[in-house]
């Protein structure tokens, strides 16, 4: 078991990091050359009106006052109102609407990556230096070298345009409307008991998940292979075989558990690339997650949305890594020291 002290310590260590993250976000937005007051007032607004907007927003206050106010907003999860999306919608509202969409995509991509990546990595390690191994490794290396924004459109072209098997973009057929409960479309369609809608959503998600999953699969199979190769070399593996256990049982019983430990850390570290991949995937497949939200917000100088989105991404990433660290210490209690 993880000791309470360890969990508490890790949670306390989170505070300065999140404080730093908020500071970086604040700094980035204040270093940007654009003027939010002009964005809100519009390009053709009079100087007087722009000044009015600026003082309404408190943008002419001293920087330290703005900073303190910003930290207060972050703590209360109130990022103000969007300049653009239905002008005046609270950013927190937009984020809660859009976040589940990205999370659903990322989780499915991660799941697909695990489902295929781990067995491939194990296979590669057990058959080390054979053709199976070489092919798997080259495949994995190609998988991480091919950009999502190239493989995605090509797969759309093949499966949607030429073969007509799958839809080109979106999350669900336009004929379906499902009341958002969790925001996860696969769950919501099931909750509504609408099987046809569920199928439509599943078909729409298939290609994005494949594209995102290929990258994760490639990464994970590489990690799993190296970790497994390392474990197979250990003395306890030789002992287990010497005791007369069949090599398959040895691998399954003693090898896997130990080989998984470093892979779990890697899943945490790679969660960042998963989120980056999700942004690109959303753009390619025109999915309205927070990835496309961020790209649009930057293009429209919608600073409150940029602020909120980047913060949410960073917090998500940090929390996942905290979770991974804690899992890790459950599997390998030595880590607490």
């Amino acid at each position: 078991m993880v000791s309470k002290r360890f969990v508490l310590k890790r949670l306390l260590m989170l505070i300065p990091v999140l404080f730093g993250v908020a500071t970086v976000v604040f700094a980035i937005l204040h270093l940007s050359p654009g003027d939010p007051a002009v964005v809100i007032a519009g390009e053709r607004a009079s100087q007087e009106f722009v000044n009015q907007v600026r003082s309404d927003l408190g943008l002419d206050d001293p920087l330290w006052q703005q900073y303190i106010r910003f930290l207060g907003e972050v703590v209360t999860f109130d990022f103000g109102q969007s300049y653009q999306v239905n002008r005046g919608t609270p950013v927190s509202q937009i984020l809660t609407d859009r976040l589940p969409i990205t999370i659903e995509l990322a989780l499915l991509g991660q799941f697909a990556g695990l489902l295929f990546g781990l067995p491939l990595g194990i296979l590669s390690a057990v058959k080390q230096d054979t053709w199976t191994d070489h092919l798997t490794r080259i495949g994995a290396l190609s998988g991480i070298s091919v950009p999502i924004y190239w493989s995605g459109p090509l797969l759309i072209l093949l499966f949607a345009q030429f073969l007509g098997l799958l839809p080109t973009s979106g999350r669900i057929g336009s004929e379906y409307f499902v009341e958002p409960v969790t925001g996860l479309i696969l769950v919501d369609t099931l909750l509504a008991g609408n099987i046809a809608a569920f199928q439509s959503a599943a078909i729409h998600l298939l290609l994005p998940v494949v594209v995102l999953g290929i990258y994760q699969m490639a990464l994970l199979s590489r990690m799993m292979r190296s970790s497994m190769v390392e474990v197979l070399r250990q003395d306890y593996m030789r002992t287990a075989r010497a005791k007369g256990q069949g090599s398959k049982i040895t691998v399954m019983k003693h090898g896997l558990r130990n080989a998984f430990i470093p892979v779990i850390t890697v899943i945490g570290i790679q969660f960042g690339s998963l989120l980056g991949g999700a942004v690109l995937t959303e753009t390619v497949f025109e999915i309205n997650g927070i990835g496309t939200l961020l790209v649009d917000a930057i293009n429209r100088s919608d600073y409150p949305v940029v602020q909120g989105t980047v913060l949410v991404f960073a917090v998500l990433y940090t929390l996942v890594n905290l979770g991974v660290d804690l899992t890790y210490s459950v599997l390998d209690p030595r880590i607490e020291q």
Partner: peptide, 24 residues
């Protein structure tokens, strides 16, 4: 190193997206 830790707490492509905006 703590500054580096903070920068590492952002998913890299997203941090890059945000940072691009500070350059003219």
């Amino acid at each position: 190193m703590r500054t580096m830790d903070v920068l590492l707490s952002f998913p890299s492509l997203l941090l890059a997206l945000a940072l691009v905006t500070i350059f003219p």
